[in-house]
Simulated assay, not measured.
Amino acid sequence: MSAESKDSGASPSAPPAKADVRPASDAVKGADDSPIVQYLVIRKDLVEVEKWPLGALLAQASHAAVAAVWLNREDPATIEYCSGTNLDNMHKVVLELKNEVQLRNFSEKLEAKGVKHKLWMEQPENIPTCLATKPYKKSDIADEFIKCKLCR
């Protein structure tokens, strides 16, 4: 299955039962006390070389983030990440890669390792602009992003 189509085809899940919601003091923490994070990786060349407005690139990242959450809406980490007590405590890490080739290669690497993500394709041009992971415990996924730079 390609990175562009990670949809499980399942119907929207019901909100978690009260017993599944952690108290605010444990907000967005996994069982190993590692925060749950969502990684976003943007193409820096779209702003620097292609001269896209910053707002346009932010919209691409937003689309990718929402799509990754929606496609993984029944995943336990996603449910916890989006629970009512955690909405004000979400963690995102925004990183950058230089260009389309690096973004496509990185998406393929994540896919090969089973890291669920959404590669956002701007339409109708079919241009890959950004990718976003589903929410993961940081301790489970951080190593995959070591070579990416923080977005500036």
Rank of each mutant, 00 (worst) to 15 (best):
S2C: 04
E4L: 02
S5P: 01
K6G: 14
K6T: 10
K6S: 09
S8Y: 08
G9M: 01
A10P: 07
A10G: 10
A10C: 05
S11M: 06
P12T: 09
A14N: 08
P15C: 11
P15R: 05
V21D: 07
R22K: 13
P23R: 10
P23E: 13
A24I: 08
A24V: 15
A24F: 06
S25Y: 09
D26K: 09
D26G: 08
A27P: 01
V28S: 14
D32M: 03
D32H: 09
D33K: 12
P35C: 07
V37W: 05
V37N: 01
I42M: 14
K44H: 06
L46M: 11
V47P: 03
E48D: 15
E50L: 15
W52Y: 12
L54R: 12
A56G: 12
A56I: 15
A56K: 14
A56E: 14
L57C: 14
L57D: 11
A59Y: 04
Q60G: 04
A61D: 03
S62P: 13
H63F: 00
A67N: 13
N72A: 03
D75K: 09
D75M: 06
A77F: 07
T78S: 10
I79Q: 12
E80F: 02
E80G: 09
Y81P: 05
C82K: 11
C82I: 03
S83T: 05
T85I: 06
L87S: 01
D88H: 11
N89F: 14
N89A: 14
M90F: 00
H91G: 07
V93M: 10
V93F: 10
V94K: 08
L95I: 00
L95R: 05
L97R: 02
K98F: 06
N99I: 00
V101S: 13
V101Q: 06
Q102E: 10
Q102S: 06
R104Q: 14
N105Y: 00
F106M: 01
S107Y: 03
K109N: 07
L110P: 05
E111C: 04
E111S: 11
A112N: 13
A112W: 07
K113A: 05
G114I: 02
V115I: 14
K116F: 03
H117F: 08
H117A: 10
H117L: 07
L119V: 03
W120E: 15
W120M: 14
Q123I: 02
E125Y: 11
I127F: 00
I127D: 04
P128A: 12
P128M: 00
P128S: 06
T129C: 15
L131Q: 00
A132Q: 06
A132M: 08
Y136I: 00
Y136L: 04
Y136H: 07
K137W: 03
K138M: 06
K138G: 05
S139Y: 02
S139N: 13
D140Y: 04
D143M: 08
D143G: 14
F145D: 02
I146G: 02
I146K: 15
K147N: 10
C148D: 03
C148H: 06
K149S: 13
L150F: 10
C151M: 08
R152G: 11
R152N: 14
R152W: 03
